[in-house]
Design a protein around this nucleic acid. Structure first.
Length: 344
DNA sequence: TCTGGGGTCCTAGGACCC
DNA sequence: TCTGGGGTCCTAGGACCC
Protein backbone atom coordinates (compact mmCIF):
# COMPACT_ATOMS: atom_id res chain seq x y z
CA UNK A 1 0.00 0.00 0.00
CA UNK A 2 1.36 3.38 -1.01
CA UNK A 3 -0.55 6.56 -0.19
CA UNK A 4 -1.08 9.06 -3.02
CA UNK A 5 0.84 12.38 -2.67
CA UNK A 6 0.67 11.69 1.07
CA UNK A 7 2.07 14.87 2.60
CA UNK A 8 0.26 17.17 0.18
CA UNK A 9 -2.95 15.18 0.72
CA UNK A 10 -2.76 15.66 4.51
CA UNK A 11 -2.33 19.41 4.04
CA UNK A 12 -5.26 19.65 1.62
CA UNK A 13 -7.46 17.67 4.03
CA UNK A 14 -7.13 20.32 6.73
CA UNK A 15 -7.32 23.19 4.24
CA UNK A 16 -10.11 22.15 1.88
CA UNK A 17 -9.69 25.42 0.00
CA UNK A 18 -6.46 24.05 -1.43
CA UNK A 19 -8.22 21.19 -3.18
CA UNK A 20 -7.36 21.17 -6.88
CA UNK A 21 -4.57 23.74 -6.50
CA UNK A 22 -0.84 23.18 -6.98
CA UNK A 23 0.48 22.58 -3.44
CA UNK A 24 4.16 22.22 -2.59
CA UNK A 25 5.29 21.13 0.89
CA UNK A 26 8.93 21.49 1.89
CA UNK A 27 11.39 23.20 4.22
CA UNK A 28 9.81 25.95 6.28
CA UNK A 29 7.47 26.88 3.46
CA UNK A 30 9.55 29.79 2.20
CA UNK A 31 10.64 29.03 -1.37
CA UNK A 32 13.33 31.72 -1.17
CA UNK A 33 15.23 29.66 1.42
CA UNK A 34 17.42 26.57 1.26
CA UNK A 35 15.26 23.48 1.14
CA UNK A 36 13.74 20.89 -1.16
CA UNK A 37 10.25 19.69 -2.02
CA UNK A 38 8.99 16.93 0.29
CA UNK A 39 5.84 16.31 -1.74
CA UNK A 40 4.09 18.16 -4.55
CA UNK A 41 0.38 17.71 -5.32
CA UNK A 42 -0.49 16.22 -8.71
CA UNK A 43 -1.48 19.72 -9.89
CA UNK A 44 2.01 21.02 -9.05
CA UNK A 45 3.65 18.00 -10.70
CA UNK A 46 2.14 19.16 -13.98
CA UNK A 47 4.70 22.00 -13.81
CA UNK A 48 7.63 19.66 -13.34
CA UNK A 49 7.74 20.03 -9.56
CA UNK A 50 8.65 16.80 -7.76
CA UNK A 51 10.15 15.49 -4.51
CA UNK A 52 13.76 16.52 -3.99
CA UNK A 53 13.56 19.56 -6.24
CA UNK A 54 15.04 22.71 -4.64
CA UNK A 55 12.23 24.97 -3.40
CA UNK A 56 13.68 27.90 -5.33
CA UNK A 57 13.42 25.95 -8.56
CA UNK A 58 9.90 24.84 -7.71
CA UNK A 59 8.86 28.46 -7.21
CA UNK A 60 10.30 29.36 -10.60
CA UNK A 61 8.52 26.48 -12.33
CA UNK A 62 5.22 27.01 -10.59
CA UNK A 63 5.01 30.54 -9.17
CA UNK A 64 1.31 30.18 -8.36
CA UNK A 65 1.79 27.13 -6.17
CA UNK A 66 0.87 27.28 -2.49
CA UNK A 67 4.06 26.66 -0.50
CA UNK A 68 3.65 25.08 2.93
CA UNK A 69 6.12 24.14 5.69
CA UNK A 70 6.73 20.53 6.67
CA UNK A 71 4.60 19.58 9.70
CA UNK A 72 6.07 16.27 10.80
CA UNK A 73 3.71 15.59 13.76
CA UNK A 74 0.69 15.97 11.48
CA UNK A 75 2.05 13.40 9.03
CA UNK A 76 3.04 11.00 11.79
CA UNK A 77 -0.48 11.15 13.21
CA UNK A 78 -2.14 10.65 9.82
CA UNK A 79 0.24 7.80 9.04
CA UNK A 80 -0.56 6.08 12.33
CA UNK A 81 -4.29 6.27 11.52
CA UNK A 82 -3.68 4.59 8.15
CA UNK A 83 -1.47 1.86 9.61
CA UNK A 84 -4.10 1.10 12.25
CA UNK A 85 -6.64 0.54 9.48
CA UNK A 86 -4.24 -1.77 7.63
CA UNK A 87 -3.61 -3.86 10.75
CA UNK A 88 -7.30 -4.66 10.80
CA UNK A 89 -7.17 -5.97 7.23
CA UNK A 90 -4.22 -8.37 7.06
CA UNK A 91 -2.44 -10.76 9.42
CA UNK A 92 0.97 -9.12 8.84
CA UNK A 93 1.69 -5.44 8.24
CA UNK A 94 5.21 -4.00 7.91
CA UNK A 95 5.41 -0.21 7.94
CA UNK A 96 7.98 1.23 5.50
CA UNK A 97 7.76 4.93 6.29
CA UNK A 98 4.90 7.39 6.64
CA UNK A 99 3.17 6.50 3.40
CA UNK A 100 4.00 2.86 2.67
CA UNK A 101 3.43 -0.56 4.13
CA UNK A 102 3.67 -4.18 3.08
CA UNK A 103 0.74 -6.45 3.90
CA UNK A 104 0.93 -10.23 3.71
CA UNK A 105 -2.17 -12.31 3.31
CA UNK A 106 -3.34 -15.62 1.88
CA UNK A 107 -6.32 -15.14 -0.39
CA UNK A 108 -7.86 -16.55 -3.54
CA UNK A 109 -8.79 -13.03 -4.66
CA UNK A 110 -6.05 -10.49 -3.99
CA UNK A 111 -7.81 -7.84 -6.06
CA UNK A 112 -10.81 -8.05 -3.74
CA UNK A 113 -8.54 -7.53 -0.75
CA UNK A 114 -6.85 -4.62 -2.55
CA UNK A 115 -10.24 -3.00 -3.17
CA UNK A 116 -11.11 -3.48 0.46
CA UNK A 117 -7.84 -1.86 1.56
CA UNK A 118 -8.43 1.18 -0.64
CA UNK A 119 -12.03 1.54 0.48
CA UNK A 120 -11.30 1.19 4.20
CA UNK A 121 -8.34 3.58 4.12
CA UNK A 122 -10.34 6.17 2.19
CA UNK A 123 -13.43 5.80 4.38
CA UNK A 124 -11.55 6.08 7.66
CA UNK A 125 -8.82 8.60 6.80
CA UNK A 126 -10.03 10.31 3.61
CA UNK A 127 -6.66 9.44 2.04
CA UNK A 128 -6.31 7.76 -1.34
CA UNK A 129 -3.77 5.04 -1.97
CA UNK A 130 -2.67 2.52 -4.53
CA UNK A 131 -2.24 -1.16 -3.77
CA UNK A 132 0.28 -3.31 -5.57
CA UNK A 133 -0.10 -7.07 -5.60
CA UNK A 134 2.85 -9.39 -6.06
CA UNK A 135 4.36 -12.76 -5.18
CA UNK A 136 7.07 -10.98 -3.19
CA UNK A 137 7.89 -7.54 -1.82
CA UNK A 138 9.74 -6.43 -4.93
CA UNK A 139 6.82 -7.20 -7.22
CA UNK A 140 4.26 -5.67 -4.87
CA UNK A 141 6.35 -2.54 -4.39
CA UNK A 142 6.82 -1.95 -8.11
CA UNK A 143 3.17 -2.75 -8.74
CA UNK A 144 2.02 0.15 -6.55
CA UNK A 145 3.63 2.55 -9.02
CA UNK A 146 1.52 1.15 -11.86
CA UNK A 147 -1.60 1.70 -9.79
CA UNK A 148 -0.96 5.43 -9.43
CA UNK A 149 -3.07 8.08 -11.15
CA UNK A 150 -1.45 8.98 -14.46
CA UNK A 151 0.70 5.85 -14.55
CA UNK A 152 1.43 4.49 -18.01
CA UNK A 153 0.57 0.96 -16.93
CA UNK A 154 -1.20 -1.35 -19.37
CA UNK A 155 -4.84 -0.27 -19.70
CA UNK A 156 -7.95 -2.11 -18.60
CA UNK A 157 -6.92 -2.34 -14.97
CA UNK A 158 -8.96 -1.29 -11.96
CA UNK A 159 -8.11 2.16 -10.58
CA UNK A 160 -5.41 2.14 -7.93
CA UNK A 161 -4.64 -1.56 -8.18
CA UNK A 162 -2.05 -3.48 -10.17
CA UNK A 163 -0.77 -7.04 -10.02
CA UNK A 164 2.80 -7.88 -10.97
CA UNK A 165 3.84 -11.54 -10.98
CA UNK A 166 6.47 -13.81 -12.52
CA UNK A 167 3.98 -14.36 -15.31
CA UNK A 168 3.78 -10.72 -16.49
CA UNK A 169 7.10 -9.46 -15.08
CA UNK A 170 9.01 -9.15 -18.35
CA UNK A 171 5.95 -8.10 -20.31
CA UNK A 172 5.57 -5.12 -17.96
CA UNK A 173 9.20 -4.36 -17.07
CA UNK A 174 11.46 -6.10 -19.58
CA UNK A 175 12.05 -3.06 -21.78
CA UNK A 176 12.23 -0.62 -18.88
CA UNK A 177 15.60 0.84 -17.83
CA UNK A 178 17.30 -1.00 -14.96
CA UNK A 179 16.71 2.09 -12.81
CA UNK A 180 12.99 1.26 -12.82
CA UNK A 181 13.83 -1.48 -10.30
CA UNK A 182 13.66 -0.96 -6.55
CA UNK A 183 17.19 -0.44 -5.26
CA UNK A 184 18.79 0.53 -8.58
CA UNK A 185 19.42 4.24 -8.87
CA UNK A 186 21.15 6.41 -11.43
CA UNK A 187 24.69 5.58 -10.26
CA UNK A 188 24.22 1.83 -10.50
CA UNK A 189 22.38 2.20 -13.81
CA UNK A 190 25.34 4.15 -15.21
CA UNK A 191 27.81 1.46 -14.09
CA UNK A 192 25.62 -1.25 -15.59
CA UNK A 193 25.54 0.69 -18.87
CA UNK A 194 29.36 0.46 -18.90
CA UNK A 195 28.91 -3.32 -18.90
CA UNK A 196 26.52 -3.01 -21.83
CA UNK A 197 23.44 -3.58 -19.65
CA UNK A 198 20.60 -1.10 -20.03
CA UNK A 199 17.22 -2.78 -19.65
CA UNK A 200 15.69 -4.99 -16.99
CA UNK A 201 15.64 -7.86 -19.51
CA UNK A 202 19.36 -7.47 -20.25
CA UNK A 203 20.23 -7.41 -16.55
CA UNK A 204 18.06 -10.47 -15.91
CA UNK A 205 19.90 -12.52 -18.54
CA UNK A 206 23.39 -11.11 -17.85
CA UNK A 207 26.31 -13.27 -16.76
CA UNK A 208 26.59 -12.90 -13.00
CA UNK A 209 30.41 -13.04 -12.96
CA UNK A 210 31.18 -9.66 -14.56
CA UNK A 211 28.38 -7.99 -12.60
CA UNK A 212 29.74 -9.44 -9.36
CA UNK A 213 33.26 -8.35 -10.34
CA UNK A 214 31.99 -4.79 -10.71
CA UNK A 215 29.59 -4.60 -7.75
CA UNK A 216 30.87 -7.16 -5.27
CA UNK A 217 29.90 -10.71 -4.31
CA UNK A 218 26.66 -9.74 -2.55
CA UNK A 219 25.39 -6.80 -4.59
CA UNK A 220 26.25 -8.29 -8.00
CA UNK A 221 24.11 -11.43 -7.75
CA UNK A 222 21.39 -9.42 -5.99
CA UNK A 223 21.16 -7.06 -8.97
CA UNK A 224 20.59 -9.93 -11.40
CA UNK A 225 18.02 -11.62 -9.17
CA UNK A 226 16.17 -8.33 -8.75
CA UNK A 227 15.94 -7.93 -12.52
CA UNK A 228 14.37 -11.42 -12.63
CA UNK A 229 11.70 -10.32 -10.18
CA UNK A 230 13.10 -12.49 -7.40
CA UNK A 231 13.10 -11.22 -3.83
CA UNK A 232 12.01 -11.79 -0.27
CA UNK A 233 8.35 -12.34 0.56
CA UNK A 234 8.78 -11.91 4.31
CA UNK A 235 6.54 -9.35 5.97
CA UNK A 236 7.22 -8.73 9.64
CA UNK A 237 4.81 -7.11 12.08
CA UNK A 238 7.57 -6.90 14.69
CA UNK A 239 8.19 -3.41 16.11
CA UNK A 240 10.91 -1.50 14.31
CA UNK A 241 14.24 -1.36 16.18
CA UNK A 242 16.39 1.51 14.91
CA UNK A 243 20.14 1.07 14.36
CA UNK A 244 20.76 4.77 14.82
CA UNK A 245 19.20 8.13 15.61
CA UNK A 246 20.42 11.34 14.03
CA UNK A 247 19.74 15.04 13.66
CA UNK A 248 21.09 17.37 11.03
CA UNK A 249 20.74 21.02 10.08
CA UNK A 250 21.37 22.89 6.85
CA UNK A 251 22.17 26.51 7.61
CA UNK A 252 20.66 29.32 5.63
CA UNK A 253 24.09 30.96 5.68
CA UNK A 254 27.24 28.89 5.69
CA UNK A 255 29.08 28.78 9.03
CA UNK A 256 32.58 30.23 8.74
CA UNK A 257 33.51 30.52 12.42
CA UNK A 258 34.74 27.17 13.74
CA UNK A 259 33.82 28.15 17.32
CA UNK A 260 30.25 28.41 16.09
CA UNK A 261 30.59 25.02 14.41
CA UNK A 262 31.68 23.52 17.74
CA UNK A 263 28.78 25.16 19.57
CA UNK A 264 26.29 23.90 17.00
CA UNK A 265 27.61 20.34 17.14
CA UNK A 266 27.19 20.41 20.93
CA UNK A 267 23.66 21.76 20.60
CA UNK A 268 22.69 19.08 18.05
CA UNK A 269 24.31 16.39 20.21
CA UNK A 270 21.94 17.51 22.97
CA UNK A 271 18.95 16.88 20.71
CA UNK A 272 20.32 13.46 19.77
CA UNK A 273 20.73 12.67 23.48
CA UNK A 274 17.00 13.27 23.95
CA UNK A 275 16.31 10.84 21.09
CA UNK A 276 18.68 8.28 22.60
CA UNK A 277 16.98 8.59 26.00
CA UNK A 278 13.58 8.16 24.36
CA UNK A 279 14.88 5.00 22.71
CA UNK A 280 15.90 3.57 26.11
CA UNK A 281 18.98 1.96 24.61
CA UNK A 282 22.48 3.37 25.07
CA UNK A 283 24.58 4.66 22.18
CA UNK A 284 27.85 2.91 21.40
CA UNK A 285 29.26 5.30 18.80
CA UNK A 286 28.82 8.97 17.85
CA UNK A 287 29.30 10.19 14.29
CA UNK A 288 29.52 13.80 13.13
CA UNK A 289 28.69 14.81 9.57
CA UNK A 290 29.95 18.00 7.95
CA UNK A 291 28.82 19.25 4.56
CA UNK A 292 31.20 21.90 3.31
CA UNK A 293 30.58 24.56 0.73
CA UNK A 294 29.90 23.97 -2.10
CA UNK A 295 28.47 20.50 -1.42
CA UNK A 296 31.14 18.09 -0.20
CA UNK A 297 30.18 15.79 2.67
CA UNK A 298 32.48 14.03 5.11
CA UNK A 299 31.88 12.02 8.29
CA UNK A 300 33.99 11.07 11.29
CA UNK A 301 33.04 9.03 14.31
CA UNK A 302 34.26 7.80 17.67
CA UNK A 303 33.30 4.71 19.68
CA UNK A 304 32.20 5.45 23.25
CA UNK A 305 34.34 3.89 25.97
CA UNK A 306 31.17 2.18 27.15
CA UNK A 307 27.52 2.32 26.01
CA UNK A 308 25.92 5.52 27.28
CA UNK A 309 22.79 7.68 27.16
CA UNK A 310 24.43 10.47 29.15
CA UNK A 311 24.26 13.96 27.68
CA UNK A 312 27.83 14.90 28.64
CA UNK A 313 29.23 11.65 27.24
CA UNK A 314 27.36 12.06 23.94
CA UNK A 315 28.33 15.74 23.64
CA UNK A 316 31.97 14.91 24.34
CA UNK A 317 31.84 12.08 21.82
CA UNK A 318 30.50 14.48 19.20
CA UNK A 319 33.21 17.01 20.09
CA UNK A 320 35.89 14.33 19.74
CA UNK A 321 34.48 13.26 16.37
CA UNK A 322 34.45 16.89 15.21
CA UNK A 323 38.14 17.19 16.18
CA UNK A 324 38.94 14.66 13.44
CA UNK A 325 37.94 17.25 10.84
CA UNK A 326 40.92 19.33 9.82
CA UNK A 327 39.29 21.19 6.90
CA UNK A 328 38.06 24.65 7.94
CA UNK A 329 36.16 25.60 4.82
CA UNK A 330 32.66 27.15 5.20
CA UNK A 331 30.08 24.67 6.50
CA UNK A 332 26.55 24.40 5.12
CA UNK A 333 25.33 21.38 7.13
CA UNK A 334 26.12 19.75 10.46
CA UNK A 335 24.78 16.44 11.71
CA UNK A 336 25.19 14.17 14.73
CA UNK A 337 24.28 10.47 14.74
CA UNK A 338 24.14 8.05 17.65
CA UNK A 339 24.54 4.37 16.80
CA UNK A 340 23.16 1.53 18.89
CA UNK A 341 24.48 -1.98 19.41
CA UNK A 342 23.11 -4.69 17.10
CA UNK A 343 20.71 -7.31 18.23
CA UNK A 344 18.63 -5.11 20.55
C1' DT B 1 18.71 24.45 -10.43
C1' DC B 2 21.90 24.26 -6.57
C1' DT B 3 20.90 20.59 -4.09
C1' DG B 4 16.31 18.56 3.33
C1' DG B 5 16.20 15.32 6.88
C1' DG B 6 16.09 10.71 8.51
C1' DG B 7 17.40 6.29 7.76
C1' DT B 8 19.69 1.40 5.94
C1' DC B 9 23.04 -1.61 3.88
C1' DC B 10 27.33 -2.76 1.38
C1' DT B 11 32.21 -2.19 0.09
C1' DA B 12 37.08 -0.96 0.17
C1' DG B 13 41.05 -0.30 2.58
C1' DG B 14 43.94 -0.16 6.64
C1' DA B 15 45.26 -2.15 11.09
C1' DC B 16 46.24 -5.99 13.40
C1' DC B 17 47.00 -10.83 14.39
C1' DC B 18 48.66 -15.57 13.73
C1' DT C 1 65.05 -8.58 -5.76
C1' DC C 2 61.04 -8.34 -4.03
C1' DT C 3 59.13 -8.47 -0.28
C1' DG C 4 53.12 -14.98 2.44
C1' DG C 5 48.53 -15.75 3.19
C1' DG C 6 44.78 -15.74 5.51
C1' DG C 7 41.16 -13.82 8.79
C1' DT C 8 38.75 -10.21 11.52
C1' DC C 9 37.60 -5.69 12.94
C1' DC C 10 36.96 -0.86 12.24
C1' DT C 11 36.17 3.32 9.60
C1' DA C 12 34.65 6.26 5.88
C1' DG C 13 32.34 6.64 1.82
C1' DG C 14 28.88 5.39 -1.56
C1' DA C 15 24.36 4.36 -2.96
C1' DC C 16 19.74 4.05 -2.25
C1' DC C 17 15.13 4.80 -0.23
C1' DC C 18 11.06 7.46 1.87
Amino acid sequence: MDLDQFIAAVEVLRRPGLHGLPVVVGGDGDPAKRGVVATASYEAREYGVHSGLPLRTAARRCPDAVFLPVDKPAYEAASEDVMAVLRGLAPAVEVMGWDEAFLAARTEDPEALARQIRERVLAETQLACSVGIGENRLQAKLATGFGKPGSDAPSGRPAGIFRLTHENWFEVLGDQPASALWGIGSKTAAKLAELGITTVRELASADVAPVAARFGPTTGPWLVLTARGIGSDEVSSEPYIPRSRSREVTYQQDLTDWAEVRAEVTRIAGQVTADVLAEQRPAIRIVVKVRYKPFFTSTHGVPLAEPSSDQTVIEQGAAAALEKFTDRRPVRLLGVRAEFADGG
